[in-house]
Each structure stands twice: as structure tokens, then as C-alpha cells.
């Protein structure tokens, strides 16, 4: 029910406060009234039931991904678990 899908803004119709967005390759319309003045073409938004509910903060998204990569590098999983299978059941 609270499903919201990351979508990229392709074009904006300022008169009607709507945008054409690309949702995983599917083109559709999204209302921008809750995020207007805050977004431009090329930005990512979260679309919930046809309405953009927030701008996705690209820097934060990339920073979080970097943190995940760092966790992977800092993990000793590769040394302990060369097959990449985490089968530990000691917890």
C-alpha cells in the first residue's frame, strides 16, 4: 500500500505541475504538487499512487552505496568463506 517507486523525471509541465517520468523503462505521468520548486528534469523522485512524494537525494543514495561497499571490503567474509556462502549458524 505504501509502495513508492523510484522514477526519473524526463520532462516537466509547469502549467499543470506534472511530469513525465521513467519508471524502470516505463513512461508515465506523475503529479509534482508535493515536490514542486524542488525538482528538475533528470532528478529522481519517489512516486506513490501517481504523485511524487519526495525527491530522491542522489548524493545520499550514492553515499549509502559507498558505505555498503566499504562494509563489504571490511568484512572478513571473503577470507573466512572463500565460496561466498555464509552458512554460519552459530548465532
Amino acid at each position: 500500500m505504501c509502495l513508492a517507486v523510484p522514477s526519473k523525471i524526463v520532462s516537466i509541465d509547469h502549467e499543470f505541475c506534472t511530469a513525465t517520468v521513467d519508471t524502470m523503462g516505463v513512461s508515465r505521468e506523475a503529479n509534482l504538487a508535493l515536490v514542486e520548486n524542488n525538482v528538475e528534469v533528470g532528478d529522481w523522485v519517489l512516486v506513490h499512487i501517481g504523485i511524487a512524494m519526495s525527491k530522491i537525494d542522489a548524493e545520499e543514495a550514492l553515499r549509502t552505496l559507498e558505505l555498503h561497499e566499504e562494509l563489504l571490503l571490511s568484512s572478513d567474509i571473503q577470507e573466512n568463506d572463500p565460496d561466498g556462502k555464509s552458512t554460519s549458524d552459530d548465532g
Partner: peptide, 20 residues
């Protein structure tokens, strides 16, 4: 990045390991 980046199997395994 937005989809596959957050579903990377290696990172999932690393998290599983840290959680254990």
C-alpha cells in the same frame, strides 16, 4: 545503482555475516 546496487549479493552476504 538504485535497484541492483541495493540488491548486490556480495554485499547481502557481507551484511549477513556482520549480523551473525
Amino acid at each position: 545503482k538504485l535497484y541492483s546496487g541495493y540488491r548486490n549479493p556480495d554485499i547481502i552476504r557481507a551484511y549477513s555475516h556482520k549480523i551473525h
